Simulated assay, not measured.
Amino acid sequence: MKYPKSKYLIVLILLFAKFNLSSQSSSPGYTAFRPGEIWKDNEGNHINAHGGGILFKDGIYYWYGEHKGKSSLARVGITVYSSEDLYNWKNEGVALSVAKDPDSEITSGSVMERPKVVYNKKTDKYVMWFHLELKDQGYAAARTGIAISDSPLGPFTYLKSYRPNSKQWPQNFKEDWKETAKNGDPEEWWTPKWRKALKEGMFVRRDFENGQMSRDMTVYMDKDDTAYHITSSEENQTLHISKLTDDYLDFTGEWVRMQPGGQNEAPAIFEKDGYCYMITSGLTGWAPNAARSFRAKSIMGPWEKLGNPAVGENADKTFFSQSTFVLPVQGKEDSFIFMADRWKPKNHINGRYIWLPIEWENEKPIIRWKKEWDLSSF
């Protein structure tokens, strides 16, 4: 049966309208942050970018994070989302895919966590660092991986992984700590003798030849474009801060230990009024704990303790979340967003994002719970 052309046009218009309405209904059109709630992307799906970090380039924010399924194992890779307003995010796909080669360090079943991307002006490359654990080794490998791209959206090319600072002593290491005591290091953990040996470099000496452990990590870029790698090391007991080479692809050998034996994880760093500030978590696995904060005149320290930045109800659990990044808001001087994940170890894909504004009291960062807020808070 034939229809007049006008009827064809009406059918096409109706189909287009239906498609357009469907498209609009899947795009949330957020105008505020709602911490802990499902946060949908432009396609109507829960944003899958856990343990994330953000790069701002040419007016666009890029959010990189771990693509999670039910478990913590990498089955897809590192995802990337883009936004101009921080509320609404476009799914840009996979920035760094797991490898099809079963012998690759980033094959499916490995662990790829806490990706951070920085742009190198000298090389015109986007450089991604992330925590890497090798397949079927649990968290024993304790490595940091690196990948590069010509575009913030990728695809990123995986280069290699490191145990940082092989055969390099930290700059704040005492000379007499370089030699193991005559009686050897204590084998029994958590004793006063063990704690003393830890502070005096027991694990640094152990890993001196093959490089230091690297788990929860971040990358910080100074105002002069010098980049630093900050990671939880020494069996997660001590943070290591390392200066990177000019191309951001390797370690210079200049590094320091921060808070030996302090059990800090999940480092997030930002700068304000001539100070470097750092927010971390304690060491309780997937379970939440009270955050910590520190500041220093130089990223290489010394660092002073400022206490738990979270205040109010559930501050002792950091509102049931763990830090991943501190985001400077463009166009709003000295305005920062505390980014954290509310982990769901029984079903990782259901992890929620906790974004809260950082306030200031007595030159200390303060984080208060807000059920809903927007950038006018700054």
Rank of each mutant, 00 (worst) to 15 (best):
K116R: 15
W360D: 11
E37W: 02
E179R: 13
A268V: 01
G69K: 11
I366P: 05
V80D: 02
K122N: 15
T123L: 12
D273E: 14
K5L: 14
W169Y: 13
S321I: 04
K182G: 01
I279M: 14
I354Y: 05
V326F: 02
R143G: 00
G201E: 01
R352E: 10
E304T: 13
F156T: 04
A197L: 07
H240F: 06
Q322G: 06
E187Y: 09
D150Q: 13
R205L: 07
T238D: 09
K344L: 07
A227T: 08
K70H: 12
Y248Q: 11
T123E: 11
D273P: 01
L327R: 04
H348D: 01
R34Q: 12
E254Y: 02
G312V: 07
F270L: 08
K196L: 12
W190D: 12
R295T: 05
A147K: 04
E372N: 10
A140N: 15
Q168E: 14
S232R: 10
A49W: 10
D316G: 02
D316S: 10
V98P: 01
W360G: 11
Y275H: 03
E187H: 03
S27H: 09
L21T: 13
N362T: 05
I54L: 07
Q263T: 07
P192N: 04
Y126P: 02
F319Y: 14
S149C: 15
M128N: 09
D374T: 07
K40G: 01
P155L: 03
E333Y: 03
K371V: 04
G312Y: 11
A268L: 01
N165G: 13
W169M: 04
W89S: 10
G44F: 08
D273Y: 07
M221I: 13
F338D: 00
M1E: 11
K346A: 08
Q212W: 07
P35T: 08
P260L: 03
L12V: 14
L15A: 15
K317I: 00
